[in-house]
Design a protein around this nucleic acid. Structure first.
Length: 961
RNA sequence: GCCGGAGUGGCGAAAUGGCAGACGCGACGGACUCAAAAUCCGUUGCCCGCAAGGGCGUGUGGGUUCAAGUCCCUCCUCCGGUACCA
């Protein structure tokens, strides 16, 4: 470790690049590559292993881990949306570096994923090849924009050295079970084995362990498209057919790897609280986790006539034996959040996939039920909810017995009940649940009201009452408030062994395997018996053998079965022997989320071959201090990362429970504003509000349009309204802005500055090419502030002088420093830039421009327009780089004027202004205001009721009448 | 339907409850130029007025306050997300 002063004042300072002499005009195309090369050769932004300690032994020094959400390197190259967040973090990183903070600011690539694989199928190009090419393009474009990443740390999720540790983390998950008592993940070896399991031998113990691991296998339905020969993601299936080609898709069960994220649901929700994230994102995550509390209740399955005897027998045995952990086949277990509505139950519904359906189906109903289940199986989850608003279902022919009233209740099958939530069965209370009511109405089922509004008011006409209230017609509970009722009945059910309190989450376990090629292979082996069939026993690949590399395939095309592509690899890859047993490798691959779950950790120690991350380094740099990226990752990426991080934390591999401190979402950049008119089939214009189905949209140039009242109209035909709107950038609309082109036309500094000047970082905002040229104009003015553009050779502008600045000039400078400093910290880059523009407007007309203000200004500009700032710094004769120069300090005395002008109001209306000393007291201000001739005239003869004086702000006279 | 976010000049926007429209674009005018571009200077919310000046203005309607773009309630529009989770 070096003990050099904060952030590399010495260690990376090299010889300066030559001044570009024949360049009196500002030419970004010449200075930008020059400084980019220099920064790279000098390793200006290389980060040390650990943050630099403070000046005293006790002071750890300031560190800032500033992170972008790394991109997927698509074949299209960088989009203008990428540099928005990247520029924001770059400004903060450069600013912090200049303030002496140790800055970690890395970049990498999330490069596994579908497009590379589809490209491979189309063209035969191996995914690794196209991926490497795309990464090279992205790298070139990122470097072209002058971001101050430490490129020594660059990584791709597809690097074997990275995959190795992704697989290692998977094995940590595989080796962990969740201890519900300690609410903590623990080594699988610590899992207590129940005696009855242990007595069944090694195989039973292994199975018991496997069923408790955080990474486990299960049969789960996938969208299999036989025509395409592939498994599709949910978003690739629309209306029951494949998005591409419109082929039928069926849901078939397939062995899958799952991650037990639900075990962490509670912690994932509770620990959101302390995070400095947008409230909306926290709420999104919390809603996604969707914790609800209620009760599970068992209903005895019995024929309506023969039930009474069985029912009392059953109650007796339950009262003695209690509520079983797993329901037997003699009962239907349901989950409800409203056990207080038990007396309103008029039917039961089970999901089409419910395990008891067969036994519940009466002989006469067998065919109808089978048909219904078949139809349901063909629909994806999406179709079921989106299209099938209308309730469908089939009566099973069976009944259950209401545990409180002993009355028979019919059992239906309907796909509005999801097999994957709760117990996959519900008690339906049509009087107090909208969905149940719709179903009851559709099938003519009875509706019994059991809750009324507590204030005695009648529920709204025609609307069902789903809120809390007071119980009616509920046996011994009648009259109770909803909350009391729930507590009371839950306790009674528990005592009788008929129910128990229960918590449910919308969050499901994470389906973690994909039947794809271009992903991380699972480091898992399946044991084979003598015939080559799997025994069901699995083992982890030894750590020393990681990474399990992807095999070479010659053909990426899908096959006839949902077997993953890896199952067609050469036998040398697929089969192996360990400890005298034969194994077949797992052939599923991990989803794209896997690599992005932990990249922020690997950046800290990207080349470590011995462990995934050195704990000393982890302790020093984590957590991420600022994380900027798109809101589309609000739920999944951020939730998955937090989950992995908590497992690593429980297992002692990281020191913090949460990975990301401050999170900010940048807004979307839309295409340029467009005016759209409509033409009828005959070719004439149609006003936008009258357009019909057959009228076609046509783009109208901005100069043929004008605003009239609320709307835009055609200039030549003002009766014709035109729509004005900015659209999402898309290839099909043809409004995509290419960063390469912008850099060619205006320069990287202009692109950076424009994206920051457009508006607040988090807002959605339309692109404007004239806006870019406006910002370019500002950079030109900055240049001319310092450089004589008319000279033959590069020379300082004649106005640049060594005069001491005047008081006004100091005020202008320090106000700018103050505003820019504060605005960077609050990520208000647009107003920081506006302030710098004011500074330039102030100094441009001056015949004498003191260096003592120009030089600090250039340092302020440096985080925003680093290339230009470096060049100006060099021209001013300062030793490069300005990127590591000290951030200027504000002198507070320059932030205050001696006299200020304050507005004077009468009745809250502005009537004049008076000048007063900045520190004037209330009496002085009021007297000065009242003495102003105009104010005095307006006040003459009126009774002053009250005078509001806010020192430094305003005076308001409140008068009578 | 539900959950977010947003409605301010011709456009992008700014404004700790205290002078609405900073800054930029566009437009208009001037200087420079043979001319144009570039540059520099100025004007630019709307309406009335020659002017001084006055009136009106932050999606709608109400409220709180000496004072509301900002706080509270109602409604409307747009954008984004989400989808029967019992």
């Amino acid at each position: 470790m070096t003990s050099s002063p904060p952030n590399g004042t010495d260690f990376n300072r090299g010889p300066m690049p030559p001044l570009t002499r024949q360049m009196p005009r500002y030419q970004p195309s010449r200075i930008e590559p020059k400084w980019q090369e220099w920064w790279e050769s000098q390793r200006t932004f290389a980060t040390q292993r650990l943050p630099t300690p403070g000046s005293t032994a006790a002071d750890p020094g300031r560190k800032a881990y500033i992170l972008d959400m790394f991109p997927y390197p698509s074949g299209d190259g960088l989009h203008v949306g990428h540099p928005e967040g990247y520029t924001a973090t770059d400004i903060v990183a450069r600013f912090e570096r200049m303030r002496g903070t140790s800055v970690m600011h890395p970049m990498g690539f999330d490069a596994f994923g579908l497009p590379a694989e589809e490209y491979a199928i189309r063209t035969g190009t191996p995914p690794r090849e196209s991926t490497d090419r795309n990464i090279a393009t992205f790298t070139r474009q990122l470097k072209m924009l002058g971001f101050s990443y430490d490129w020594d740390r660059v990584l791709s999720t597809t690097d074997p050295g990275y995959v190795r540790w992704t697989q290692w983390i998977f094995l940590v998950l595989f080796d962990t079970w969740f201890d519900p008592t300690l609410q903590k993940g623990r080594p699988i070896a610590d899992l207590p084995i129940p005696a009855e399991v242990a007595s069944d031998g090694e195989g039973a113990i292994a199975a018991y362990r496997d069923s408790h691991r955080l990474a486990y296998q299960s049969e789960a339905p996938v969208n299999w498209c036989p025509a395409l020969g592939t498994v599709l993601a949910n978003e690739e299936v629309i209306g029951g057919v494949s998005e591409r080609g419109g082929h039928p898709v069926v849901r078939i069960p397939l062995r899958q790897w799952m991650l037990r994220i639900t075990a962490y649901a509670d912690r994932l929700e509770r620990e959101l609280e302390g995070l400095d994230w947008p409230a909306s994102i926290k709420k999104l995550q919390s809603d996604w986790i969707g914790r609800s509390t209620g009760a599970e209740v068992d209903f005895l399955i019995a024929a309506p006539d023969a039930g009474a005897e069985a029912f009392s027998q059953w109650k007796i045995s339950r009262a003695a034996g209690g509520f079983p952990a797993r329901p037997g086949t003699d009962v239907l277990r349901i989950y409800t959040t409203r056990p207080d509505t038990l007396y309103g139950v008029t039917f039961m519904v089970v999901a089409p996939e419910h395990p008891l359906i067969d036994s519940l189906t009466a002989p006469g109903q067998r065919q109808a039920i089978a048909a219904y289940r078949d139809a349901a199986a063909r629909k994806s989850d999406l179709d079921r909810t989106d299209l099938a608003r209308e309730k469908t279902g089939v009566f099973t022919g069976s009944h259950v017995i209401h545990p409180l009233t002993g009355r028979p209740v019919p059992v239906w099958v309907a796909d509005y009940v999801l097999a994957t939530y709760g117990t996959g069965a519900i008690m339906a209370v049509p009087a107090h649940d909208e969905r149940d009511l719709e179903f009851a109405n559709a099938f003519g089922i009875e509706v019994i009201t059991v809750v009324e509004p507590a204030d005695g008011s009648a529920p709204a006409e025609g609307r069902l009452f789903a809120g809390d209230g007071r119980a009616v017609a509920s046996g011994p509970y009648t009259g109770l408030g909803t909350r009391d009722f729930i507590g009371r009945v839950a306790a009674d059910l528990a005592a009788a062994g008929l129910g128990r309190p229960s918590v449910n989450y919308k969050l499901r376990d994470w389906l973690f395997s994909r039947q794809r090629f271009w992903g991380e292979p699972f480091p898992i082996l399946h044991e084979l018996d003598a015939d080559g069939s799997p025994t069901g026993q699995i083992r982890a690949v030894d750590q020393q053998e990681l990474p399990v590399a992807l095999p070479e395939l010659t053909d990426y095309r899908p096959g006839d079965t949902p077997d993953p592509p890896l199952s067609r690899s050469a036998p040398e890859w697929l089969f192996l022997e360990r400890d005298g047993k034969r194994y077949r490798r797992e052939t599923n691959t991990m989803p794209q989320w896997a690599g992005s779950c932990w990249y922020y950790l690997r950046f800290l120690d990207p080349k470590n071959d011995l462990r995934f991350l050195d704990p000393e380094i982890e302790k020093a740099w984590m957590p991420v201090d600022l994380y900027i990226g798109g809101a589309e990752h609000a739920v999944l990426h951020l939730l998955y990362s937090r989950f992995w991080h908590k497992v690593l934390y429980d297992r002692g591999h990281v020191s913090q429970p949460e990975p990301f401190g401050r999170l900010v979402n940048q807004g979307m950049i839309l295409g340029e504003m467009e005016f759209t008119g409509y033409r009828s089939g005959k070719g004439g214009w149609v006003s936008a509000e009258k357009r019909g189905e057959d009228d076609v949209a046509a783009k109208v140039p901005a100069d043929q349009v004008e605003k009239q009242g609320e709307h835009f109209v055609l200039r030549d035909a003002p009766k014709i309204r035109v729509e004005s709107r900015a659209y999402k950038m898309s290839k099909s609309r043809g409004n995509v802005v290419n960063p390469d082109q912008v850099v060619r036309d205006f320069g990287a500094d202009s692109l950076r500055l424009y994206e920051m000047f457009m508006g607040p970082l988090e807002a959605t905002k339309p692109w404007s090419t004239t806006g870019v040229s406006g910002v370019r104009g500002f950079l030109d003015r900055c240049w001319r502030l310092v450089v004589d553009e008319r000279a033959e050779e590069l020379a300082l502008a004649s106005q640049v002088c060594d005069d001491p600045p005047s008081e006004d000039q100091f005020r202008e400078l320090h106000r700018t420093i103050d505003k820019v400093t504060k605005d960077i910290q609050s990520l208000s880059f647009n107003t920081a830039i506006a302030r710098m523009m004011e500074f330039v407007n102030f100094f441009t007309p001056l015949e004498r421009r003191p260096r003592a203000v120009l030089e600090p200004f250039v340092t302020l500009l440096a985080p925003f327009a680093p290339h230009l700032a470096e060049e100006l710094w060099q021209i001013l004769g300062r030793p490069a780089p300005v990127s590591l120069a000290a951030w200027p300090a504000v002198e507070n005395r320059w932030l205050r004027d001696e006299t200020i002008e304050i507005p004077v109001q009468i009745q809250g209306k502005l009537r004049g202004r008076v000048a007063v000393p900045a520190d004037a007291d209330i009496e002085t201000i009021q007297a000065t205001a009242a003495a102003d001739p105009k104010i005095a005239e307006l006040l003459a003869g009126r009774e002053i009721l009250k005078v509001v004086v806010v020192p430094g702000r305003l005076v308001n006279f409140v008068v009578k009448g």
